[in-house]
Design a protein around this nucleic acid. Structure first.
Length: 553
RNA sequence: GCGCGGUUAGCUCAGCUGGAUAGAGCGUUGGCCUCCGGAGCCAAAGGUCAUAGGUUCGAAUCCUAUACCGCGCGCCA
């Protein structure tokens, strides 16, 4: 619809140029936007204003010429007006707005999808929490944002892979093993001095108990070997927990990528050799450095420590280069905002090894503040433990949890009100939206009971939808595909959430004002058609966010 | 000190590529159940868009500086 309008404007401009009313001869980019106020019509363009300079004419004069060339009303618009400093406002016909209802009815769950991404291969890597402890609330936000972003990109036609990078190779894994080992000895009755740099959480003891049950001979082994076994067991077990938590959250990864495998396949050395060959690394103080400062980082970074062991950064170089070798044209990393200092060096890696840095997009997810009774609430029951993601999901449910995590822009901090998330009232946005969906389902059940059948496409009496709020709802529905597209282009799932809240509000308001199932059969059927389109869009949007669209509540 | 993010109504936040009179929810105040699910709706009050400059037809939006809040700045991960 917007496109048809754009074409009409371009054609009008051509007319102006050929008959000499306008002189510059260059068609500018025609921007059409939805005005903030309804009295300004359905779409507005500012071309007359942007052309003012080149034409050396007053914007309103230019607008007049364009409007004259556009001609009178037709099946697309019913009114064209010049307003304000030179806006051209279009009011479209009711008929053409109602056309979107047929489109929704036809496409159903495909309404809102597009092929804009053209099958381009994109990877979204998210969560990637160290396998040394359960997921906490902060991981949860990244998990949901990553998952929803992936879903949205898929909806607009990208070939998306979801990946979890498992840091199973670094020091932290040894620390995990040692922590378990010490607890194990404690269980055997030894007095153990548990160091501060070991993992303090109570889950370590749980792991030790489990391990003791499955491998009682462990205590007889030499320390190094025992710790190794403890590490392997711990990583395996913790990953299982993480997988279970994510499953509870409805998140599925296409691929779990092991950091250790980069070493096993000698890929770290291979990439480091490439850097050396390009003269991008050097030795100093017994360590190997990457000249990240050549690409905008504020200091160079160590790849190999003076003790000969590689840094986390070294494997990350290999990992990211390997991503591109796998054929992704774009790679999206979802990180906690506390890792933001890492962005410049990662971009430097790409630049140094011959990829445009823009091919890597890093989404930084700001912190979550949990609040209960309005009070900050970050510590769990056992002191020293962050509240786990699982505890929150079990308390408020996956739907509410996901919805709340998506309610804010990722780069602003999020206050998570536990009480509100649990509340079953319209104050709780997730219930409010879900209830709108359930309400249409309820109307459908009722319609069946009173014998009003949904009308067939093509036989809907759109002229009986003569109320302003019916038109407004249709306009709202027609915006959905653009909202999805915008969310995809900017990696901003929260846009869908805001849209949902707005749509639900408009629907509830409509519902309250006018009975869908009334005395007039034709009107009832038309309204039934309309509210079912609302239902479809609500369901599509909720599904995109991984939130359920219940038929009853 | 340097870097990143933030600053919009009493509170929590939206605000698209710079557009017309800056929006929503909560809270406050006042209304609405003979009615498809009140898990809902309607209305009112509430603003120096942190501050000061700049860019221009036009700035909450872009640029510069300042203030405040959060985070980061290791041969940790």
């Amino acid at each position: 619809m917007k496109e048809r309008l754009r074409q009409a404007i371009c054609a009008a401009l051509e007319t102006c140029f050929s008959n000499g009313t306008l002189g510059s001869g260059e068609i500018p980019t025609v921007v059409l936007e939805v005005p903030a106020h309804a009295e300004h019509g359905d779409f507005a363009t500012n071309v007359a204003m942007t052309m003012a300079r080149a034409e050396k004419k007053a914007p309103r004069k230019i607008a007049e010429a364009i409007v004259a060339a556009l001609g009178g009303e037709n099946d697309l618009w019913q009114k064209v007006e010049i307003a304000g400093p030179g806006f051209i406002n279009f009011s479209l016909t009711r008929r053409c707005w109602y056309a979107v209802l047929d489109e929704i009815d036809e496409k159903q769950e495909r309404f809102g999808l597009s092929t804009a991404g053209a099958g381009e291969r994109v990877q979204v890597e998210f969560v990637s929490a160290n396998p040394t402890g359960p997921l906490h609330i902060g991981h949860g936000r990244g998990a949901v944002v990553g998952d929803a972003t992936a879903a949205i990109l898929r909806a607009v036609g990208y070939d998306v892979q979801r990946e979890y990078y498992v840091n199973d190779a670094g020091n932290q894994v040894v620390t995990l093993g040692r922590s378990i080992w010490l607890r194990l000895r404690e269980l055997a009755g030894e007095a153990v001095d548990f160091p501060e740099d070991c993992y303090q959480g109570g889950y370590i003891r749980d792991l030790a108990i489990d391990l003791k049950a499955s491998d009682s001979a462990l205590l007889d082994l030499a320390e190094e070997e025992a710790i190794k076994k403890c590490s392997a067991f711990g990583v395996c077990q913790v990953l299982e927990w993480i997988g279970a938590d994510l499953k509870l959250f409805g998140i599925h990864f296409d691929n779990w990528y092991s950091e250790q495998s980069l070493y096993d396949h000698n890929m770290v050395n291979t990439e480091l050799a490439k850097l050396a060959a390009k003269g991008l690394s050097y030795e100093q103080d017994g360590a190997l450095w990457f000249k990240t400062t050549e690409y905008g980082d504020d200091k160079d970074r160590v790849l190999i420590k003076s003790d000969g062991s590689p840094t986390y950064f070294a494997s990350d170089v290999a990992y990211h280069m390997e991503k591109f070798e796998r054929g992704f044209s774009r790679v999206i990393d979802v990180w906690g905002a506390d890792h933001h200092g890492y962005v410049p060096r990662m971009k430097a890696v790409l630049a140094g090894l011959g990829h445009p840095p823009e091919d890597l997009e890093v989404l930084l997810i700001q912190m979550v503040n949990l609040l209960r009774d309005g009070q900050p609430f970050t510590m769990g029951k056992r002191s020293g433990n962050f509240i786990t993601l699982r505890e929150v999901i079990e308390e408020v449910g996956s739907d509410a949890c996901r919805f709340f995590f998506l309610m804010r822009r990722s780069d602003s901090q999020l206050d998570f009100y536990l009480d509100l998330a649990k509340q079953q009232s319209s104050d709780n946005p997730v219930y409010y939206v879900q209830y709108a969906h359930a309400r249409v389902c309820s109307i459908n059940r009722n319609a069946k009971e009173v014998g009003v059948s949904p009308p067939a496409r093509g036989e809907v009496a759109f002229d009986r939808l003569d109320r302003d709020d019916e038109l407004a709802l249709s306009k709202m529905l027609s915006r959905y595909p653009e909202v999805v597209e915008g969310a995809a282009r900017h990696y901003e799932p929260h846009r869908i959430v805001f849209y949902l809240q707005e749509l639900a509000a408009q629907f509830h308001s409509y519902y309250n004002r006018s009975k869908v199932l009334g005395d007039d059969r034709e009107v009832s059927q038309a309204r039934l058609y309309l509210v079912n389109c609302v239902r479809t869009v609500l369901a599509n949007a909720l599904t995109l966010l991984g939130v359920s669209a219940p038929e009853t509540m």
